[in-house]
Simulated scan of single mutants.
Amino acid sequence: MEFRYLGNSGLKISAITYGNWLTHGSQVENDVATQCVRAALDVGISSFDTADTYANTKAESVLGEALKGERRESLEIFTKVFWPTGPGGKNDTGLSRKHILESINGSLRRLQTDYVDLYQAHRYDPETPLEETMQAFADIVRQGKALYIGVSEWTADQIREGVKLSKELGFQLISSQPQYSMLWRVIEGEVIPTCEELGVSQIVWSPMAQGVLSGKYLPGQRPPEGSRAADEKGGADMIKRFLRDDVLERVQGLAPLADEAGLTMAQLAVAWVLQHRNVAAAIVGASRPEQVAENVKAAGVRLEPELMVKIDEALGDVVERDPAKTSENAPQERVA
């Protein structure tokens, strides 16, 4: 396993981070989820990413149970706050002081830990003053309930203002968690340059573009049974943007390039995001333990510059690069 510093901090995390967005508490049984976590530990993964909203808090509980008994100091546990939890009441969402302070206590209880290494704003809250949000994060850090603060899917301007306030309040905002893959590069134009300037790292989600970059979805054919695209509960809406025949045809052109690198297509996708110096980690999930062992082989792989050029040529104009997509996909008001 390769370990990288997270932002301008002394914290190191595993370059492959295990995430349980669409699996724990919903898609797979708890015993299989535990087996996947154990498999992650066995291959050297020490960083685990979850969120209170995943499976409406169940994912945190499953992860906490799976990690019970492990040396806490050897783990880096990340969770998030923003989206609705519980019954979805008027204060069960957003980044108000009330919701943040109540949410961290619930997350710690479910994760069976006294602190999380990284507490992340799952989205930007347009209805709460940023000063209120950042003051609540500062208090959580001072209370020892979180060591560092991060954000997810914030624009470059939002990140800049968040970092400014964090410094004024005496804590570190060190990470951004955006979607990033060969097919979805919207952070390259603005978010990444801003983060490089400010000392903020990326922990990227969906490096395999919801599984499309594994090559298992073929143009003109129905999605395989049991795949994410066939599961209305498992992210089918998220994957639709990549299931156009023109995209799938281009993705199939990556197969010989993966062979050239001695990797599977999925490993090539993960290795590709890890080539960027501002990316500290790629989040991967698993519904079977053996998937973890396969994904981890992407850690430490160096792709030659010539191969990176060939990948760009193979994908051509199906790559999404518009920086405006970050704000377009963000909530314009709280989701209750």
Rank of each mutant, 00 (worst) to 15 (best):
R160A: 15
T53K: 11
N329H: 11
K297E: 11
E127K: 12
P305I: 11
T79W: 05
A330V: 05
Q275C: 04
A280Q: 01
H122L: 07
R123W: 11
G25R: 02
A324C: 01
G88H: 14
G10Q: 10
E328Y: 13
R244W: 10
E168F: 05
E196I: 12
K164D: 12
S74L: 05
G7S: 03
T133I: 04
M182Y: 02
V335P: 00
A55I: 09
V191K: 13
V247S: 02
V191M: 10
K58M: 11
V319F: 00
S206L: 11
Q135N: 15
K164H: 14
Q221K: 15
K325P: 02
L268C: 11
S14Y: 02
E70N: 01
M182I: 03
E313A: 13
T264V: 02
P256H: 04
A255G: 10
P87S: 08
A59G: 03
E127N: 13
H24D: 11
P256M: 09
A280N: 00
C195R: 08
I16H: 01
G199V: 03
W21I: 09
D317R: 13
V273Q: 08
L268Q: 08
I45D: 04
L268E: 12
E304G: 08
I174C: 15
I283W: 01
V204S: 08
M308V: 13
V43Q: 06
D317H: 14
R142V: 10
G285D: 01
E65F: 02
G211S: 13
E232W: 01
A138K: 11
G253T: 09
V37F: 04
E127H: 05
G189E: 12
R250I: 10
A146R: 10
D312F: 06
M265A: 06
A138C: 08
P193Y: 10
I192D: 06
Q291D: 01
E232C: 02
I283F: 00
Q252A: 00
A230E: 10
E2I: 12
A280L: 02
K98W: 08
F3K: 14
C195Q: 10
P223T: 09
M208W: 00
A299G: 14
K145N: 03
V309H: 13
H122P: 06
E260A: 07
D31V: 15
N30P: 04
D139R: 07
Q267P: 13
P256V: 12
G300N: 07
I311M: 14
S46V: 15
R4T: 10
Q221L: 05
T53P: 01
T93H: 14
A59S: 15
L268F: 09
P129K: 02
G7K: 00
A209S: 14
K216W: 11
E73F: 13
S47C: 04
K310F: 13
D114E: 15
R288W: 00
G7F: 00
E290T: 14
A266Y: 06
P219A: 11
E60V: 07
Q35F: 02
L173W: 08
M1E: 03
A330H: 03
E2D: 13
I283E: 03
V292P: 01
C195V: 06
G44M: 09
V279P: 07
V37A: 03
V163K: 01
V270R: 05
E313S: 06
L254F: 09
I239S: 05
S201C: 04
L218G: 00
A236H: 09
R244A: 15
L169Q: 15
I104H: 03
A255K: 15
A138L: 07
A236P: 09
L147V: 11
A314E: 04
S26G: 05
L169Y: 15
